[in-house]
Design a binder for these strands. Structure first.
Lengths: 197, 197
DNA sequence: TGTACATCAGTGAACGCGCGTTCACTGATGTAC
DNA sequence: TGTACATCAGTGAACGCGCGTTCACTGATGTAC
């Protein structure tokens, strides 16, 4: 059993990572200090050597979960060099993303939760939504901020709906339909930009 | 203090109504038997004369909340006689709807929660999503089931995003942008149907 | 219509349980000499 | 390099609290005569 300073940093990291996954899989309220610590092979008492309180951990786990998702989407977007709208949409609305809640987009996973949370949490998620919209606007090649915000909303909504629907075929159909509509929207935007330019 | 049979039915109704509001405002997990009963001026012990368990109540409250939202949207849709796509979109993406979580659409309020809930809950919400899509397809005058499902997804996503965003102006902008895009989609569908017919 | 009584809606004390948090303690780490 | 000691990451018992649920009880309801 290690007690070095380096190992403390690793412990903290393991706790935070586990929490970031857990809140995406089962919601902010699902995290209990005891269970969380047990799932990283530590005891509950040690928790307060890493975080001031459960609520402090939750705030940091939300931030972490949002960054995880953002990092994933950034990788998806950059095929090489420039962002790719079609690739982003296809990856976001893939069956793989739908089925991997634990590592997927935290905005979709926690939108309802955060919509009713305190202003701090909302501001944190807001910042990430804005960044997503910016990246999508760049990928679409349009300065239309509204269109990008709509695309983000539709992506989140479609992923959520596909996760609620129990019948796999119908769930797939939601993803496919949304992909089609959004690619058309992106295409129209690019075409419009091309015409205007 | 009444104890008649009629009053028992009224009590049950008050409990269920309060719970349906509460879960939309603060989530499924926010409901505690004690607090719920106190908020309808009863004591916790009486709860089990009305419901088998907290989880039984939650299931019924979810169903009730979804029906409330559906009833509201049906009223919005029927101006008189036929359903109206533009009116539905405008009402759904209004500031009033965004700001009234307690009485608003339960799909948006609980999408993230239900997406990670047991299959029973998901099936209940799924049925309501399907009904919404059907009604929207009829209003758009298109047999394109996928387009209607996309519209539902986008409505939910945009309402959720507008509820996360803290700055009122930016939140309004999300609603406005989504309204524009969806009305264009509905218009395109109608135009397409008119051309085809 | 008036009386006697069974029913049952609602009360509130009590239960076991898991929660977040605290704290005295243990023993490996890593530093001073 | 070897020894002595302060530090501090992690342990686990203990705390007060609110939870869901049970149950003996109360007293108004509504029925039988």
């Amino acid at each position: 059993m290690g007690h070095s300073q380096a190992e403390k940093a690793q412990s903290r990291e393991r706790i935070l990572k586990e929490a970031a996954g857990q809140i995406r899989e089962a919601g902010l309220e699902s995290v209990s200090v005891g269970t969380l610590m047990r799932s990283v092979n530590l005891t509950h008492g040690g928790f307060y050597g890493h975080f001031a309180s459960r609520s402090d951990l939750l705030a940091q786990a939300l931030e972490r979960a949002l960054c995880d998702g953002e990092a994933a989407s950034r990788l998806a977007t950059d095929t090489w060099g420039t962002p790719d709208f079609a690739a982003s949409v296809r990856r976001y609305l893939s069956r793989k993303h739908r089925d991997s809640r634990r590592s997927g987009c935290a905005i979709a996973a926690l939108a309802s939760d955060v919509a009713r949370a305190d202003e701090d949490s909302r501001r944190v998620m807001e910042a990430h939504i804005d960044r997503c919209a910016d990246r999508l606007a760049a990928a679409m090649g349009t300065p239309d901020e509204g269109k990008a915000l709509f695309a983000v909303s539709a992506l989140i909504g479609a992923l959520l709906v596909s996760r609620v629907i129990t019948d796999p075929k119908r769930s797939d159909a939601v993803l496919t339909a949304a992909r089609q509509q959004l690619l058309a929207l992106g295409g129209a935007a690019s075409a419009g930009a091309a015409q205007a330019g």
